[in-house]
Each structure stands twice: as C-alpha cells, then as structure tokens.
C-alpha cells in the first residue's frame, strides 16, 4: 500500500509537470497575448510593443521563459499578473479566489451527497419499484440539464420571482454576514450539487445492487442479522466505485465551476480563469490551470488512500 501510494504520488508530480508544459506552450502558440490587451486602441506602434514585450520578458526564447516560470513554480511562485491585477502575485489572488470556490464546492458536495445516498440506496433496495423509477427520471433530467440553463432558470424563478436576495449573485464572506453568505451560495450549490448527485446516486445504485447480490449478504441473512446490518454490509462493499465518482466530483468542483461561477457572479477560480483568458493574462491562465491540475492530483491521491481504508484487501495486499 505504501509503495503504491508513493508510486501514485510520483505519477502525480509527473502529471503536473506535463500539464504545466502543455498549458505553457499552448498559450504561447495561440495568437494574441498580454501585449495586445495592454495597448489601447490608437496607440499601437511597433516600438511600444517591443518595449512592452521586453519588459514582460516575452522576448526571451521559449525554453528560457518556461524554465523561468517552472523555477518559480517550484518555489511556490506563480508569477505576476500582467493585465488583470497588474503587478499583483497570481498565487495570492488564486489563494483568495480558491477560498470562494472551495466553499461553493463543499456546499455543493454536501448537497450532492445528501441527495445521492438516500436516493441511491433506496433505488437499490426497491429496484424497479415506483421510487426507483422516480429517482431514475430525476437523475436523468439532472444530468441532461445544462448548468447554465438550470442556473438561469433558478435565478429567474427564485431570484426574480420569489426572493430578490437569493438570486442576487456575488459573494459575501461568511464572517461578515453568515445568512447572506448562505443565500448567495445556495442557488449555485444547488445547480452544481444536483448535477453531481445524479451521477453519484446512479453509481451507488448499481454498485449497491451488485453488493446485495453477493453471497456474504446471503450468509448475513442466514445468520438472522437485522436488515439494517445487512444493508450497511452491502453499502461498505459498494463504496469503492462510488468513492471514485465522488472523487471525480470533488475534483471537478474544486477546480472551479466556470459557467456556474460566471452566472452567479462568484469570484472563484472558474470565473478568474475566464477573466484571465479574456484579458490574455498569461500567468493567470497558467497559474489557474496548474493549480487545478494539482487539485485533481491531490484529490485522486486522497481517493486512493480511502480505497485502502474501505477495503482491507487493498490495505494489506491480496497475499497472505
């Protein structure tokens, strides 16, 4: 298990390295750059451009630029924003923005799990019965509804129709106004949470049905054990694929939900990325993407750890 985790960790680092190279080179291949964004209409002139390029270090050869950035990366320095927050450290802004994304992610995940677990377990226990069909229908509509649609629909229905402040969007720190914080995060969290709840509950249903059909469940019943214990047995054995799906959801949520954050005007990672792209602010885009990859790698490592916690066969290996 330990060797396995070490291997996964090293692979994670490698993934990060490859991702950093890809994003760095792609951004330098696509046309347009920070210089275009910085020069105002009418002031365009080659000399000014050259000056700017030199000042921003964009006139250096590609490999030197990359080495420079990568070196900073290892020191935990993501560079300086060129356009959006001129001169401001990208790392600092990302950290600030990540706070908002993380809060939204946690709330969304909580909503997703609160829906997915009861729905998934009930669907498995009452397979092909009324409740199962209802959950199937709801889950199907959940995954097929685009987030931008549900987000806007919720704003229109609740924000405009019922309660102005619910759909107001924006962000208030929890410390300043807990209720306002909750109200502003609730709708986007519902949009994201229901989306992920659908896939988690479907996986839970499938994997729970598989576990319920296994022989140890029959043994438990033959020993007269209460139904509740039997269900918990099955659930424990059904968790591995479910944890994988939850890990995917957690990773996706923590990367920043681009569309949902933009719709609800939340200053998170996702909306930061969008702004960075519009502004051609290279260090911002690079920084956000690398951090997002890092989050994915970390979440996947955590999921691997959880496997060992759930299943002793993984914890101790399959040998005797």
């Amino acid at each position: 298990m330990r060797a396995y985790l070490l291997k996964r960790f090293l692979f994670g680092l490698l993934t990060l390295l490859v991702a950093s190279f890809l994003i760095f080179s792609i951004l330098r291949v696509v046309p347009g750059g920070p210089v275009d964004a910085l020069i105002e209409e009418g002031w365009d002139d080659p000399e000014l451009r050259a000056q700017l390029r030199h000042k921003l270090g964009l006139d250096l050869p590609f490999h030197l630029q990359y080495a420079h950035w990568l070196g900073g990366l290892f020191r935990g320095d993501l560079g300086v924003s060129l356009v959006l927050y001129q001169g401001e450290s990208v790392g600092r802004v990302i950290l600030e923005r990540f706070g908002v994304t993380a809060q939204l992610a946690l709330l969304s995940l909580a909503i997703a799990l609160l829906i997915a677990f009861p729905a998934g377990i009930a669907s498995a226990l009452w397979k092909d019965r009324f409740l199962d069909h209802v959950f199937r229908l709801v889950a199907l509509s959940g995954v097929s509804t685009p987030n931008f649609f549900l987000g806007i629909a919720l704003i229109v229905m609740i924000g405009v129709g019922l309660r102005r402040e619910w759909g107001a969007g924006g962000y208030v720190p929890f410390g300043e106004d807990p209720w306002g914080w909750f109200l502003r995060l609730l709708l986007p969290a519902i949009v994201l949470g229901t989306d992920h709840a659908a896939s988690i509950s479907r996986m839970l249903r499938t994997s729970m049905l598989d576990a319920l059909g296994r022989e140890f469940v029959l043994t438990a019943k033959a020993m007269g054990l209460p139904r509740r214990w039997v269900v918990i047995d099955a659930l424990r054995n059904a968790m591995i694929p479910v944890v994988t799906v939850i890990g995917n959801s957690a990773g996706a949520l923590l990367d920043g939900a681009v569309i949902t954050e933009v719709i609800f005007r939340l200053p998170g990672l996702g909306s930061f990325l969008v702004q960075g792209v519009y502004a051609r602010d290279l260090p911002v885009v690079q920084g956000v993407v690398v951090v997002a990859v890092g989050i994915r790698v970390a979440v996947n490592l955590l999921v691997d750890l959880l496997y060992g916690f759930i299943d002793p066969r993984i914890r101790y290996g399959s040998g005797r």
Binding site: E215, F216, L218, T219, D233, N237, P312
Partner: peptide, 8 residues
Amino acid sequence: LSSLNPTL
C-alpha cells in the same frame, strides 16, 4: 471466500 464479508 464470497460467503464471508471481505471488509470485516
């Protein structure tokens, strides 16, 4: 093997 719960 399958009649015993692998997680306990």
